[in-house]
């Protein structure tokens, strides 16, 4: 028997605190990005390099999100417990949002620095394939009506997608190495030349984005619970229309 938590339950209070912490730390991170962190060299894009404080944390959190999808998918297939399915679904949605952010911020930086919006290198291509895979995952969830079946089908895609991405990464890596076209791209994190203030800014930004991620995940899971309860109530009303006549 599940009862809906009232609006002021400890759970929703915790989510609210998490949200406040997330937004305060994002504000701090933004100030750090523009005030504390020094401007990068022209080779790294100068002012534009500040986009990395958003780009790299987004990428890491996208990976985290899809790792959560993978683990929860396995847990769901083993236990058949709805909470794993809901967590996997929520993490996939947020992971797609963060991956989209990565795919938008990357080219904005690359255009002036590399001279091109896009390069088919291993990291870019596997990120794009990752995005496509989990967009497919969300489509599959949307196009299936029976919830327990949806969870089962989606879990398989969540698992397969996670195995595919390393193969894509390495295959494209070989592909590019065998056919060098255009300028070679240095690993963006390798020669970033971050000094002390920049490193501190980066880790504050990473923490801020992680809090934001946790908050969004908690919100999305709670929304999922509420949807489940609404569906339960609806099913109950449909099942017993005579027992509960509409008041006039």
């Amino acid at each position: 028997m599940s009862t809906s938590p009232p609006a002021s339950s400890p759970q929703s209070k915790a989510v609210a605190y998490l949200g406040t912490a997330a937004w305060v730390s994002v504000a701090i991170a933004v100030v750090m990005m523009f005030v504390v962190a020094r401007e990068a060299t022209d080779a790294m894009g100068g002012q534009l390099q500040r986009i990395f404080y958003v780009h790299v944390p987004s990428a890491w959190l996208a990976y985290l999100a899809f790792a959560i999808v993978f683990i929860c998918s396995i847990a769901y297939l083993r236990t058949n417990a709805r909470r794993w399915d809901l967590l996997a679904h929520s993490a996939a949605e947020i992971g797609v949002v963060f991956t989209t952010l990565v795919l938008i911020t990357g080219p904005i930086w690359a255009r002036p620095v590399w001279g091109t919006w896009w390069q088919w290198d291993a990291r870019l291509t596997s990120t794009l394939v990752l995005w496509l895979t989990y967009v497919g995952y969300l489509f599959l969830r949307g196009l299936s009506s029976d919830p327990s079946r949806t969870g089962r089908l989606a879990a398989i895609v969540g698992i397969v997608g996670f195995f595919d991405v390393p193969i894509v990464h390495y295959s494209v890596n070989w592909w590019r190495t065998l056919h060098p076209l255009g300028p070679t791209i240095a690993d963006p994190t390798r020669d970033s030349g971050l000094g002390g203030p920049e490193l501190i800014t980066f880790f504050i930004s990473l923490s801020a984005f992680t809090l934001l991620f946790a908050w969004l995940l908690a919100l999305r899971v709670r929304l999922g619970h509420l949807e489940d309860q609404a569906a339960e109530v609806e099913a109950w009303e449909d099942a017993a229309p005579a027992a509960a006549p509409a008041p006039t």
Binding site: G136, F139, V160, D164, I167, V168, V172
Partner: peptide, 10 residues
């Protein structure tokens, strides 16, 4: 195709 095409890239 939405599911299979990304997986078949390699």
């Amino acid at each position: 195709p939405i599911l299979a095409l990304p997986a078949l890239v390699p």
